[in-house]
Every structure is written in C-alpha cells, then in structure tokens.
Simulated scan of single mutants.
Amino acid sequence: MNAVTPILPDLLVRQPCDALTTWHHYRSQILEHVATSEFAVTETLSLMSVAALDGSAIKIKPTLHARFEQLFGLLGPEGPRAKKGKAILVPLKAVQDRIELRNLLCHGQTMLYTHSKGSWIARIRMMTVSKGHAILKDELLTEEAVAEALQDLKLQSKMLVARLGQFQKNLTSTPSVTPSAPVAQGSR
C-alpha cells in the first residue's frame, strides 16, 4: 500500500489509440506518395510511347518496380532521353527504393507494440512466393524510422512529380523552328 504512483497530465502520456492513429496516418501518407509517383511514372511512359523518337511504341511494363526500372533505363545514361532526363534520375531512384516499404505496408500483417510513453514499434510480417516457395519476411520499424522514411519520400516524390511534369510538357510541346543561320540585314 506504500507504492508511489506518479500522477502525470494526460498531455505527457500518449495512449495506445494515439499510437495506432499515428501509425495509420504515416502508413496512408507513404502509400499516397508512392501512388502519386507511380501515376506520374506511368503517365510519362505513356506519353513517351506516343512521342517515341524512332516511331516505335514503348510497351509499358505491368509491375510497379518494372515501370520505375523501365523509365530509369529510358532516361538513364544509356537511354535515348538521357540528356533531358538526368534531373529526374535522383528522385526516381529514391522513390523506387521505397517500393519494398510500400509492398510491406500494402501486403503485410502488422502488429503494433506500444511503450507506456506512447512510442511504438511496428512488426510487419509478409509472405512472398518465389520459385514456388513461400518466404517469410519479418520487419521491425520504429516510429522514428517510419517518420523519417515519410519525410524523405514526401520530398523525393514531390520533386519527382514536378520534374516529370516538366518533362511531359517538353514531350508534348511542338519544337519551334530555329534558323540555322542568322537573318541577314536588308540592303538599303
């Protein structure tokens, strides 16, 4: 009966439901930024197919990871649009690196472990199938790691979408005719 129980204001102690709300907020924001990037990448590939340099259409890959790789190949150092696409490569690669996290968040089973102060760790288990065998993937993500991943993804996704938007404008605009020699002055 002589136990000392500290009395703390509710503002200092986060409840487990707050942790769950935060987790769902982070998760939905990560998925939203990947989806926005995915849309921009697919839209760019579609426009590139229509405006192909040599008249051949680009067959767009069916999987998310493959579409990112396909665009990277077209805009990368060896690609046909390397000169115009080099500013896109860094954010494209950064978002592409987060696709595995997106897969975990979409297809994984999550268990949230909370601390009495409200911080949490998410354990995500996902089964993948490779060559006919099931493989268990088990990941632990801290609240800080998820928040950091979200901030990085948000920045890179916005940069990617903006740069792809400019690239798309350049694809669809008609090039203006530039004379090869300056116009000569008229004689008087």
Rank of each mutant, 00 (worst) to 15 (best):
T63V: 03
K154M: 05
H107F: 03
K59M: 02
V50C: 04
F72A: 13
K169A: 08
T22N: 12
K83A: 04
A184V: 13
V183H: 12
L141F: 13
S173T: 15
T114D: 03
E43Q: 14
G85Y: 02
S46H: 13
T5A: 11
E144W: 07
A51S: 11
E143D: 09
L20P: 05
L89A: 06
P182A: 12
H25E: 08
R163I: 00
Y113F: 08
L104V: 02
D54I: 07
T44W: 00
D18A: 12
N2Q: 11
E38F: 02
T44H: 04
Q151P: 04
K59L: 03
W23F: 15
G73P: 03
E148N: 12
H107T: 05
K61A: 11
G79M: 04
A149Q: 11
L71K: 07
K84G: 01
K117E: 00
T142Y: 02
G108F: 03
L104R: 10
G132V: 10
P91V: 03
E32M: 13
Q151I: 09
D54F: 02
P77R: 12
S37N: 02
H33D: 01
R98I: 00
Q96R: 13
H115T: 13
P179K: 12
T42S: 09
G165P: 05
L74T: 02
Q29S: 12
A94P: 01
L64M: 14
Q96K: 13
H24F: 11
Q15H: 13
A35H: 06
K84A: 08
Q96L: 00
T63H: 08
P80C: 03
S28L: 10
A3D: 12
A66I: 01
T172Q: 13
L47P: 04
A57R: 15
Q156A: 09
D152Q: 14
L136Y: 05
L74P: 07
L171G: 07
H65M: 07
A40K: 01
L153P: 01
L31P: 05
K169I: 10
I99V: 14
N2K: 15
L45Y: 02
N170M: 10
L12G: 09
E148T: 15
Q168S: 13
G73F: 01
L75S: 04
A66S: 11
L31C: 06
I99L: 15
R67L: 00
P179Q: 11
